[in-house]
Amino acid sequence: MVDGRQKTRITLSRLAEGERAQVVQVTAREGALAKLLAMGILPGVELSLVQAQPLPVVRMGSTTVALDRELAQLVEVAPLGPGSRPGRGGRRRCRWWRRG
């Protein structure tokens, strides 16, 4: 929907830890929608899942936000493959959000 290509869509709550994804659709309404928008989670935004437990924590650019599973289920994303997993393992590929 965002860039025309057909991709698998999953809800944000099912994204794997460390995986990157692009937000495709926000199915939340009213209060929940306002909260997601306030955090900057809207279609087209790229994010990566920092951790899944105990709550999903996502990183967008240099912003990190936590949201509960109920909210994460209202966000549909298209996975873009593994990103870097902060704090896991030794040296990693350069982080996409930090490339100068």
Binding site: G31, A32, K35, L36, A38, M39, L55, V57, T63, T64, V65, A66, L67, D68, E70, L71
Partner: peptide, 9 residues
């Protein structure tokens, strides 16, 4: 309604 949680970290 049960509350929803979100927070900037």
């Amino acid at each position: 309604e049960p509350p929803l949680f979100f927070s900037h970290i």
